[in-house]
């Protein structure tokens, strides 16, 4: 006697139904699944080859340069040390494999999430449907995604990346929707008042003003992708996750710790770089900011006339903008 029978409730076989649905997908959408498998394998393996083709130390320098470009020399230094440690711990290849998986999964997730978020922001009905689905996706334990992934793609890299994409998607959709909805209503009205089409308003006003929020979403997508990429080790996807799985199986503490440290190093690097990309204004010390400052200082005529006192010219308006952004 099961609990359901004891409570005189029918046994609802949700799991069976879903399983049937998966079987149906597996049988009928085989072409799509094959296409996904082939494309993902090609792209991820290609990216791994690319990351592995220069000598590792050159790659370390490149990663440090990226950190300096978007953030600061401090992050660049930290990146150089951290990535050098990856080499020294002899986990360079699995680290690059994980990085490639995270990058590709993020790109696919963002490519799906942003249009979906835009749709949800523009249409309350879409939003009402999407929101509970996202809640469901986000609270579902990540491991569960591995099951259909393995059903569809057996084991290896592809089920790992599939599960990673699904798992990482929700914050991308959510924050895109939020970013667009919180664009100042009057600014959107200005676009309408001058006769801009919905597409012109989306491209010229809503998307640019939503960028910081969308980038915060991308940042979360990357973090979730990284955590899922480790779990993807269970499906046999190459990378740090696989090392973790092995270390558990063999109770190999040193291997597990080193793989864990590798994940942390990647996580810090990806987090800092993407959050700096979302708020370029806050990183005055970055190379990009310096280049930009030099260019504006060199060119452009200086303003000549104003009929207002110059005092307090920029600070009040800055606060005003930020206040408005909050409403």
């Amino acid at each position: 006697m099961s609990t359901a029978e004891e409570s005189m409730l029918p046994r609802v076989r949700v799991g069976d139904w879903i399983d049937t649905a998966f079987d149906w997908i597996d049988d009928n959408l085989n072409i799509l699944l094959t296409l996904f498998r082939d494309v993902m394998t090609f792209v991820v393996e290609g990216l791994v080859d690319l990351l592995m083709s220069p000598p590792p130390l050159v790659m370390v320098a490149l990663f440090a340069l990226v950190a300096w470009l978007v953030s600061s020399w401090r992050l660049a230094l930290g990146t150089a040390l951290g990535f050098a440690l990856l080499i020294s711990m002899d986990i360079w290849l699995p680290s690059m494999q994980t990085l490639a998986l995270v990058i590709v999964a993020t790109i696919v997730a963002v490519a799906l999430a942003v249009p979906l978020g835009v749709l949800a922001a523009r249409n309350d009905a879409v939003s009402a449907v999407v929101r509970p689905v996202l809640d469901f996706m986000q609270t579902m334990p990540g491991f569960v995604y591995l099951i259909p992934a393995v059903t569809f793609f057996s084991i290896g890299l592809v089920p790992g990346i599939f599960a990673t994409i699904i798992f990482a998607l929700p914050p991308g959709v959510r924050l895109t929707e939020l970013g667009i909805r919180q664009v100042d209503a009057e600014t959107v009205e200005a676009g309408q008042a001058f006769g801009a089409s919905p597409w012109q308003i989306l491209r010229g006003i809503q998307m640019p003003l939503a960028v910081p929020t969308i980038m915060a979403g991308v940042n979360q997508v990357i973090m979730l992708a990284l955590s899922m990429a480790v779990i993807a080790g269970f499906t046999g996807a190459d990378g740090l996750g696989k090392l973790v799985v092995e270390s558990i199986a063999r109770l190999n503490t040193p291997l597990g710790v080193e793989a864990g440290i590798g994940v942390v190093i990647l996580a810090i690097f990806l987090d800092r770089v993407t959050s700096a990309l979302g708020n370029p204004g806050r990183h005055a010390g970055s190379l990009l900011a310096r280049l930009r400052a030099r260019r504006t200082a060199a060119g452009g005529p200086q303003p000549t006339t104003t009929s207002e006192p110059a005092s307090g010219s920029s600070s009040p308006s800055t606060t005003e903008t930020s206040v408005r952004a909050g409403t």
């Binding site: 005529p301 303003p303 006339t305 207002e308 307090g312 920029s314 308006s317 800055t318 005003e320 903008t321």
Partner: peptide, 13 residues
């Protein structure tokens, strides 16, 4: 006149 290259945030209300 001459303020065309500035950003709005650099101007007073």
């Amino acid at each position: 006149k001459g303020w065309g290259e500035s950003l709005p945030g650099e101007l007073s209300g």
